[in-house]
């Protein structure tokens, strides 16, 4: 079972899930005949059909490769670091929504640098310098509202 999990089977499964979701949504969009300009659902239907075929092809390739023991580019493992990276990015976006740019940017820079192993003092210094530079360039020069 473990051998079946490779980058092709993962890609194929993800694509088939996406295909199913898009196909379900497409039922809400009208499909018109040729003389009526083919309708807004025509091209998404063509694309999603293509995607479905490719998803199956990817899945079949992955299974065939695992059966033949052929070496395939295996899927890279999702590590705790992956989750932390994604979480930090989401929190930064949420922070910007509620508190503007400056404070969340400073917090994001400091936390991510410390998490990556930069000494705290150095991280503080770089955070202050970068935040000031961002304020001067974008806030003062480009007149962007950063708060």
């Amino acid at each position: 079972m473990r051998a079946i999990v490779n980058s092709f089977t993962v890609t194929g499964t993800a694509v088939l899930i996406l295909t199913a979701l898009v196909a379900a949504y497409l039922r809400r969009i009208p499909f018109a005949p040729l003389r009526a300009g083919l309708g807004p659902a025509f091209f998404p239907t063509v694309t999603v059909t293509m995607l479905g075929v490719l998803g199956v092809a990817s899945l079949v390739t992955g299974i065939a490769c695992s059966r033949r023991q052929t070496s395939v580019n295996d899927v890279e493992p999702v590590t705790p670091r992956s989750f932390v990276t994604v979480l930090l990015v989401i929190l930064y976006a949420v922070g910007i929504r509620h508190a503007g740019f400056l404070i969340p940017t400073g917090a994001f820079l400091f936390v991510s640098m410390v998490a990556l192993g930069v000494p705290v003092r150095r991280a503080v210094l770089i955070t202050v310098l970068t935040s000031t530079a961002i304020y001067v360039v974008f806030g003062l020069m480009f007149r962007m509202r950063l708060f």
Binding site: F8, V15, L18, P44, T47, L54, S58, T61
Partner: peptide, 12 residues
Amino acid sequence: IKGLIGGAVGLL
């Protein structure tokens, strides 16, 4: 296959 999948997702 993955290249074509990328292209098709982009089209979508």
